[in-house]
């Protein structure tokens, strides 16, 4: 069950990070001079989403043990 939960969490995080990536590249294409700021914001948001996914994975690991 834990592994299943971790998998679902990874799915959600994948969708989230994918959306960030697509929007960020789109924004950089629209406004290349702001690429530095966009990249920073992208990395921060991606890390936040990853954090949420990792919460779920930790809970999955703990429930397995």
């Amino acid at each position: 069950m834990g592994a299943l939960g971790a998998g679902i969490a990874a799915l959600g995080a994948g969708i989230g990070v994918g959306m960030i990536g697509s929007k960020a590249t789109e924004s950089i294409a629209r406004q290349p001079e702001a690429s530095g700021d966009i990249r920073t914001a992208m990395i921060i948001t991606a890390a936040l989403i990853e954090g949420a996914a990792l919460f779920a994975i930790v809970v999955g690991l703990l429930s397995n043990g």
Partner: peptide
């Protein structure tokens, strides 16, 4: 949790 989980993972 973020730091712990990222590095452990």
């Amino acid at each position: 949790i973020r730091l712990f989980a990222n590095i452990s993972a």
